[in-house]
Amino acid sequence: MKIEHVAIWVKDIEKVCEFYRKYFGGVVQPLYHNPTKQFTSRFVTFESGARLEVMHRPDICLTTGNANEEHLGFAHLSLSVGSKEEVDHLTQQMSNDGIQVVGEPRTTGDGYYESVILDPEGNRVEITI
């Protein structure tokens, strides 16, 4: 068994897709639109075969309070970048680009080397080896 894809609701599909393209090398697929349901989505595919479905529908409420606080529902997306050095480099690049870093690079208690940033809509993204 493998996970086929992970889906996330967003306000701005293009901005979020561009984030995952720019920083993680994702390939943004064509826009799908269902006018009856007012639903749009794009898949972002990654070299490993993983896929992220970035979705929007105007009636989906995205208010979760403070984006820095944990909340019920989607907790985080973890993306492997291959090395400790790349975790450090990418985290620094994102910080320089004004992306909010909420967890500096570190080794966690369970042995992961990771940092945590917020994507353009406040979703937690864990950058790991």
Rank of each mutant, 00 (worst) to 15 (best):
L52P: 00
V116A: 03
M94V: 06
N96C: 11
K11G: 14
E53P: 00
T36Y: 09
I129T: 15
I117G: 06
D88Q: 15
T40C: 08
H71K: 12
E70Q: 14
I60H: 09
E47N: 09
W9V: 06
E14N: 14
T107R: 11
T36I: 12
S48G: 00
T63N: 00
H33N: 15
M55D: 13
P35K: 12
Y32A: 11
E85A: 15
R21T: 11
G82Q: 12
P58T: 09
S78F: 06
V116C: 03
S95P: 04
H56I: 04
E70T: 14
N66S: 08
T128P: 01
F24H: 07
R106F: 02
R42D: 09
Y113N: 03
G65K: 10
L118R: 09
Q93N: 11
I127D: 02
Q38K: 14
T91A: 10
I60A: 12
G82P: 13
T107H: 05
I60M: 13
L79G: 02
G82T: 08
V44K: 01
G103W: 05
E104V: 05
D110P: 01
P105R: 02
R106T: 07
G49A: 03
H89R: 15
L118Q: 07
V44M: 04
K84W: 05
D110C: 01
K22I: 07
Q93E: 14
G122V: 06
D12V: 04
Y23K: 06
E85V: 10
F43H: 08
D12Y: 11
M94W: 09
L77M: 08
L31V: 08
I8A: 03
H71E: 01
G65L: 10
I8D: 00
H76W: 07
G103N: 03
T108D: 07
P30K: 04
F39I: 07
V87A: 07
E47T: 15
G122L: 09
D88F: 11
R106L: 02
L52R: 01
N34A: 10
C17W: 00
I8M: 04
P105W: 04
S41R: 11
K2A: 05
L79I: 15
S115V: 03
P105L: 04
R42H: 08
F74R: 01
F43D: 05
I129L: 11
V101D: 04
T128C: 08
E126G: 00
T45E: 05
G109V: 07
E104L: 07
V54W: 04
T128H: 08
